[in-house]
């Protein structure tokens, strides 16, 4: 099943934002298909248009021309917009700026309340969502007292509570320390195993290497789209776009240059495994 489809999408901030005239479109003629259950990293340098693309997916922004379809419904269809947002959940960068309540439980309830679920069901959803991010013991806690990684997990739970089919994370790991980043990765990996489509926006290529598919944007256009292996094979192009190879891949390429062929390497764990198997 197709989850999200971009058809020749053009988007520009100039008309509704109105900061300057003749602003270059943030997204130019983008076509893209995302199937249900995929595990995708969407990459690009700052200003490449990746956050705009994320916001086009759930109708927070709508295309100037072309069309974005979420499960067959156009995001321009105002009647269906709440259905689309229910299906396509979204997490933002700063966990502090996406919570509305002073108690974890109340915050998780916000989404289910918005879609008008009955009270008993909301209670069940809260337990389900907090369980999925392993934060059940913090049900009555104040978000203010949690660590960055924990806050971001609560934000994810808040979205999971409406049971979306797709989860878009807009640089949701960028403000976290390495520990927090791992926590979030573990959560989205297990959600994906249960069938949820995950789209993480990031510029850490080490992180992107752990996904099944990498989409690279540059200057509002699709620059690359493929498996990590395919994308990282185009090293020079990546460098031109301002992105780096994952550290393990980079080191491995130097090994190869010097006559030590370990085969393909995408992540640190893979490289270490191959090093341990040497001799």
């Amino acid at each position: 099943m197709t989850a999200i489809e971009f058809k020749n999408v053009v988007f520009s901030y100039s008309e509704d934002g109105g900061t300057e005239n003749n602003i270059e479109p943030a997204v130019k003629e983008l076509s893209l298909t995302i199937e249900q259950g995929e595990f995708i990293a969407l990459c690009g340098h700052n200003g490449s248009g990746k956050s705009t693309v994320a916001r086009l997916m759930n109708g927070l922004l709508t295309p100037k021309s072309g069309e974005v379809l979420a499960f067959g419904e156009s995001t321009q269809n105002k009647k269906k917009i709440y259905d689309i947002r229910k299906d396509v959940g979204m997490i933002f960068q700063n966990p502090d700026n996406q919570m509305i309540a002073t108690i974890v439980e109340d915050d998780i309830a916000f989404g289910p309340e918005n879609i008008g679920l009955p009270r008993e069901e909301i209670g069940k959803r809260i337990d389900f969502a907090l369980g999925a991010v392993d934060m059940l013991e913090f049900k009555q806690a104040s978000p203010y007292k949690l660590s960055g990684g924990q806050k971001q997990r609560i934000a994810i739970a808040g979205v999971l509570a409406v049971k979306p089919k797709v989860l878009v994370l807009d640089e949701s790991t960028a403000m976290l320390d390495p520990k927090g980043r791992r926590e979030i990765f573990d959560v989205i990996k297990s959600l994906n195993k249960e069938g949820m489509t995950i789209i993480l926006i990031t510029h850490y290529m080490d992180e992107a290497a752990l996904f099944d598919r990498i989409i690279v944007l540059d200057n509002g256009k699709l620059a690359m789209d493929g498996t990590p292996k395919e994308v990282f094979a185009r090293q020079t192009e990546l460098a031109e776009i301002g992105l780096k190879l994952p550290r393990a891949t980079k080191l491995n390429s130097y090994f190869k240059e010097n006559g030590l062929d370990l085969g393909e390497v995408l992540s640190t764990d893979e490289l270490m495994e191959k090093i341990c198997q040497l001799k």
């Binding site: 080191l251 130097y254 090994f255 240059e257 010097n258 006559g259 030590l260 040497l278 001799k279």
Partner: peptide, 11 residues
């Protein structure tokens, strides 16, 4: 530099 030394040692 590191990769070069490693490759030389192992090779």
């Amino acid at each position: 530099v590191f990769a070069k030394t490693v490759a030389e040692k192992i090779a």
